[in-house]
């Protein structure tokens, strides 16, 4: 498995921490799935309730790698400032860089993304950019200092799966040595298995687990699918063909007419 900025992960499952019915169910989802990375964010804290302090304590007890995001940022300045604040609070160089460009699809603004990635990489951050499958943008991100790319499967929270199989296959083939993560849009474990079968190194998802009727069971289902897809990719899948080919030997068949 490819490393993420020198860090080898136990598996290819990165799981979000938002939208769960309760903190206990969130913790259960991580325990059953053994997801190796948790994504988190920063939001305004109240000096009275101090809700973020309890959340942080719970996340630390999960004993997973922490990947803070810049979710909701639309400008380079917002994203860069948020990244600096996240680096201090979470004590990590990792940052899931999101610069949103359009509200209906939550599609990344790839122009601002590249600019923010360059600024943050030069400042010592290890950037995980949420991007599209566009190869030219991917190349610009790598030149900006990114060593990991995170193309979307489909719009965030849509559950549509891998919308552009051709584009994602091309990306995998074009950047054979770059760790690639499918980030966003997955709805079912079979879609995660498909991503791993294509040779992606990890998947990052949140809504498909948190909004399932039984989030912890769904988290385990995703973990199992990710493992299956990873094993299948390593096992060198057969080439599909258009016409049938008998699997049972023809030689030795009885003449019974």
């Amino acid at each position: 498995m490819r490393e993420f900025y020198g860090t080898a992960l136990a598996n290819g499952f990165m799981l979000g921490t938002a939208q769960y019915p309760s903190p206990a169910i969130l913790a259960d989802a991580f325990q059953r799935s053994k997801a190796s990375v948790a994504t988190v964010s920063l939001r305004r804290e109240s000096g009275q309730t101090r809700a973020g302090q309890d959340f942080w304590q719970m996340i630390r007890e999960l004993d997973v790698h922490i990947l803070p995001n810049t979710a909701g940022c639309h400008s380079v300045k917002e994203a860069v400032t948020t990244a600096h604040m996240a680096r201090e609070v979470f004590d990590t160089k990792w940052i899931k860089l999101e610069v949103i460009g359009e509200e209906d699809t939550l599609q990344p603004d790839v122009f601002r993304l590249v600019e923010a990635a360059r600024i943050l990489s030069e400042d010592g951050f290890q950037v995980f950019p949420y991007t599209t499958e566009d190869l030219v943008v991917a190349d610009r991100l790598l030149h900006a200092g990114c060593e990991v790319l995170m193309p979307w499967g489909a719009p965030i929270g849509s559950g549509l799966g891998l919308n552009n199989l051709f584009g994602l296959r091309a990306m995998r083939a074009h950047f054979p040595d770059v760790p690639l993560v499918i980030d966003a849009g997955l709805g079912l474990p079979s879609q995660a298995a498909q991503a791993m079968e294509l040779g992606f190194d990890a998947v990052l998802l949140n809504t498909a687990v948190a909004k399932a009727g039984d989030p912890a069971a769904m988290a385990e289902a995703f973990a199992t699918a990710i493992r299956a897809g990873q094993l299948a990719a390593a096992a060198d899948p057969m080439e599909p063909r258009d016409m049938a080919a008998p699997s049972t030997p023809v030689i030795g068949k009885a003449f019974l007419q």
Binding site: S41, R44, W56, I59, N69, F90, I156, N206
Partner: peptide, 10 residues
């Protein structure tokens, strides 16, 4: 002034 703390995120 903005004061931010760890929160749930995807």
């Amino acid at each position: 002034i903005e004061v931010l703390a760890p929160m749930q995120g995807g």
